[in-house]
């Protein structure tokens, strides 16, 4: 079951290790106000949402909808990288008519495809949206091998389909 807005605030606050009093102080409100937010009795002022999201280490979208947004792309130094075998490439297609498709492709498997010259773009994922994007998978693999992780591609098509490619 989806969490309420208040429950998400409480969860994020606890994961940051803040007390209600500490968050209240950061936001310039009373501890009772934070308590009311978390119990869905009242909501924070809309103008304070970006600050609240920043203090809780998430996005406004994540706070409002509960949908976790993929991390922005970053280059990880070689010594801190996950072993290649454990890395996963996720293709997320959210179609305009409300369908969601998620493909979890371990990178070693993607490499097998790339080495074989099988045409990945001809796979029909997400009502053909992925095909039309004509993604350069070799370029993506090169980026990953150089240590880039996070959301590498985000495309919104004219008819409203959204495609994200995330490497974790």
């Amino acid at each position: 079951m989806n969490k309420t807005f208040g429950e998400r605030i409480a969860e994020k606050r606890k994961s940051k290790g803040y007390t209600q009093e500490q968050l209240a102080e950061m936001m310039g409100v009373s501890a009772q106000a934070v308590s009311k937010w978390e119990n869905d009795i009242s909501c924070p002022d809309v103008m304070t949402l970006p600050t609240l999201a920043q203090k809780l280490g998430c996005t406004v979208d994540e706070l409002l909808t509960g949908r976790e947004s993929a991390p922005q792309p970053t280059i990880v130094p070689e010594e801190n990288r996950k072993p290649f075998e454990q890395m996963m490439l996720k293709i997320v297609v959210n179609s305009c008519d409300g369908d969601h498709v998620r493909v979890n492709l371990p990178l070693p498997l993607l490499k097998v495809f790339l080495n074989s010259e099988v045409d990945l773009t001809s796979f029909g994922v997400g009502n053909g949206t992925l095909n039309r994007l004509n993604i350069d998978w070799k370029a993506i693999m090169l980026l990953v091998e150089q240590g880039t992780i996070g959301k590498l591609v985000e495309v919104t098509s004219a008819d409203g389909d959204v495609v994200e490619i995330v490497v974790e």
């Binding site: 996963m88 008519d97 369908d99 498709v101 493909v103 371990p106």
Partner: peptide, 16 residues
């Protein structure tokens, strides 16, 4: 891959 990702789901589709 399955030795490393025990509960791996290749494709997950949820319709509207």
């Amino acid at each position: 891959v399955k030795k490393i990702h025990k509960n791996w789901v290749l494709v997950d589709v949820e319709s509207a």
